[in-house]
């Protein structure tokens, strides 16, 4: 089989299926830490299948936006995923400046998620949308700064250059990668609504961020949105994996290391969620700003490396 075709298939498989298992592993880890047996790691997959079989219930106060948004969210997330490299730095769409297109495609999805939440006219959902939007305003610039610095280091502005950072910059590169990974991890916690930013398991409408925005969604809509959210998590994990997995170690080993990274990240998230409490809403900003400050350090290091002092 053609090598590229195989990689393309692998990327698509990961994008579509890994979300369920990543969420499953997080749940299993949390169950482990609380001394429970926990549900099977296939449960998120079964849940999604179950939701696909269900009818949609649509509130009479909503407009076409609400109807349309879940599809947009899913499609944009999946589309953004096509730009992201998985194994051997291979991404299905590989163009210069991909990270800008990538961010704005994700941004479009988020925009629809926000206005769909506002469309329901519920006071909670508006509140959730406002929270989500305010965290995004911090996350987005930081993400740009990090990615711009990383790809600028290699001189070729594609995602594929991520794996080059360590190889071509030595110890300096290692330092940059550590900071970038930490800050992408903070982004992952924020964007995928995990503890300490959000609590995905809570039933308390007033404290939710992401969950409250989808309170009115049901059936296939809900399935698409949760699936998209999982894909987004896998995308961010894949970026981290690409930063730390070296190039040219053979296909089998790459796949192994890649999957291992996903599992490890899921276990780390699960463990983190078991051991700490959620932050107060007003303190979440401080936490998200960690990402910004790390991003600035990454940018300065990259500048130092590129232009000298």
């Amino acid at each position: 089989m053609d090598n590229n075709l195989m990689l393309t298939l692998f990327n698509i498989l990961i994008l579509l299926l890994a979300p369920f298992f990543v969420i499953g592993i997080i749940k299993k880890t949390k169950a482990f830490w609380s001394g429970r047996k926990g549900v099977s790691i296939f449960q998120p997959l079964f849940d999604t299948i179950r939701l696909f079989k269900k009818d949609r219930t649509i509130s009479t106060t909503t407009s076409w936006v609400f109807n349309f948004a879940p599809a947009v969210v899913f499609v944009t997330t999946l589309l953004a995923g096509l730009f992201v490299p998985m194994i051997n730095c291979y991404s299905i769409i590989n163009v210069a400046g991909a990270f800008i297109i990538f961010s704005y495609i994700l941004g479009l999805g988020k925009f629809f998620a926000l206005i769909s939440a506002m469309d329901t006219g519920s006071s909670f959902e508006g509140m959730g949308a406002s929270r989500e939007a305010s965290f995004t305003t911090i996350v987005e610039p930081a993400f740009f700064i990090i990615l711009a610095s990383l790809v600028a280091l290699s001189g070729n502005y594609t995602f594929a250059s991520l794996a080059d950072v360590i190889k071509s910059n030595g110890t300096f590169g290692i330092l940059i990668v550590i900071l970038a990974v930490v800050s992408l991890f903070v982004m992952l916690l924020t964007e995928c609504s995990r503890v300490p930013v959000d609590d995905p398991t809570t039933h308390l409408e007033l404290t939710m961020i992401h969950e409250v925005m989808i309170l009115d969604n049901s059936g296939i809509d809900l399935a698409l949105i949760t699936w998209a959210n999982g894909i987004k998590m896998v995308i961010l994990m894949a970026l981290i994996a690409n930063l730390i997995i070296p190039l040219g170690i053979g296909f089998g080993l790459s796949v192994g290391l890649f999957l291992l990274t996903l599992v490890l990240l899921a276990v780390i998230i699960g463990t983190l969620e078991s051991g700490i409490a959620r932050l107060r809403m007003s303190h979440v900003f401080e936490f998200v700003f960690v990402m910004s400050s790390f991003a600035l350090v990454v940018a300065s290091l990259a500048a130092v490396k590129m232009y000298g002092i």
């Binding site: 830490w33 609380s34 609590d199 051991g275 409490a277």
Partner: peptide, 12 residues
């Protein structure tokens, strides 16, 4: 109380 602030260990 601990469940409400997502402190799983205490809740369980």
């Amino acid at each position: 109380i601990l469940g409400d602030i997502a402190y799983q260990m205490g809740k369980e």
